[in-house]
């Protein structure tokens, strides 16, 4: 099965079309046809941008076509379902992020549990969030934000219900012991707009959505939610440093496949991902977008997801966030 003539390929294709379950076998010549990289969001979002940059570089690393396919819908659960139901041959992969991978299992009755139906290949990037205030509440430190919130209930905006921005804010409230009011927006853009316009008090949002306004002084960044400071905002402390103990939150992206990937294919993909993540041409763009390349692979990535899932499950339960 090393070389096939055209007619054989056609015949094989027809056979595969007729018998819907083609056998999965170890493929030393992987990849020998285009790989579909499923993105659970519509074209044009943040995850989509990362996926497209990643796919373009992954093509070089694998030496084959990688086609991004947007399968949005049902709070990003459609993408999970599609990949979980695909043949585990390495030709259908998923860009997973924490929403559908570790938060949604707490919110929805999912037909495919990502922890069981998917094989984690490698984590791609981790992007910390930032706590920002605008002209409505011009406090200089995170401690004063907490004090202000204790004096009067504050209003925060988020990129949407159960978004990373929403959950990170809720976790902030829980950790700091303050009661805050949530205003959901459709995406970070409109929410930041209302923060700048002085209509809401604060936000916990992705770094790229506000970094320009922070550098300019229009908004004040009080803390980053990662475990380390962010290179382009060196003066902004971590939440830990700013006095809110144990508060970390980040948005992450990873590469996953359907459960049961052949070991050689999984290894090949993990190596290719590592190659992409060691290329400054890719990581520079990632850094510009607020992301830090990850080194978690396979079982370590799975363990990280399990830990995140437990953590956000507590946040969701304590805040009473639900869709029913």
């Amino acid at each position: 099965m090393l070389t096939l003539n055209r007619r054989a390929v056609v015949a094989l294709g027809l056979a595969a079309a007729l018998s819907s379950a083609a056998p999965v076998m170890a493929q030393s010549d992987y990849p020998n046809k285009p790989i579909t990289l499923v993105v659970s969001y519509a074209a044009g979002g943040g995850t989509d941008a990362i996926a497209r940059l990643f796919a373009a570089r992954l093509e070089q690393a694998l030496g084959g076509r990688v086609i991004v396919e947007n399968r949005p819908g049902a709070a990003a659960n459609i993408g999970t379902e599609v990949v979980a139901g695909a043949e585990p041959d390495g030709y259908t992969l998923l860009i997973g992020n924490q929403g559908p991978m570790v938060v949604n299992p707490h919110l929805f009755d999912l037909p495919a549990d990502p922890a069981e139906a998917l094989d984690p290949i490698a984590m791609i990037a981790d992007a910390a969030l930032v706590v920002v205030v605008g002209p409505k509440l011009p406090v200089p430190t995170l401690g004063e934000l907490v004090d202000a919130a204790k004096a009067q209930q504050l209003v925060f905006g988020s990129a949407g219900n159960a978004s990373a921005s929403h959950l990170a804010s809720v976790l902030f409230g829980q950790t700091a012991g303050i009661d805050i009011r949530h205003v959901p927006y459709q995406g970070a853009g409109p929410a930041v707009n209302d923060l700048v316009g002085g209509h809401i008090d604060f936000m916990v949002t992705t770094i790229p959505s506000v970094i320009g306004l922070v550098q300019d002084g229009t908004l004040t960044a009080l803390a980053v939610t990662g475990s380390a400071r962010f290179a382009q905002l060196p003066d902004v402390p971590t939440a830990q440093e700013a006095g809110v103990d144990g508060y970390t939150a980040s948005a992450w992206y990873g590469l996953l496949g359907p459960k049961g990937l052949p070991e050689d294919v999984r290894q090949r993909l993990a190596n290719a991902t590592a190659e992409v993540l060691s290329d400054p041409a890719f990581t520079d763009k990632l850094a510009n977008d607020g992301g830090v390349p990850s080194t978690l692979v396979g079982a370590d990535f799975a363990a990280y997801m399990a830990q995140e899932r437990a953590r956000w499950g507590e946040v969701v339960a304590a805040a009473g966030i639900s869709v029913e």
Binding site: G44, G46, A49, L53, G187, G189, P208, S209, I211, G212, L213, Q215, D216, T218, Q232, D284, K285, N288, D289, G290
Partner: peptide
């Protein structure tokens, strides 16, 4: 416009007043 922001960020230009 959100996509344009993304394009600027990736190019290393921070969109904003500056």
């Amino acid at each position: 416009m959100a996509l344009m922001v993304g394009a600027m960020m990736i190019q290393g230009i921070v969109p904003g007043p500056q």
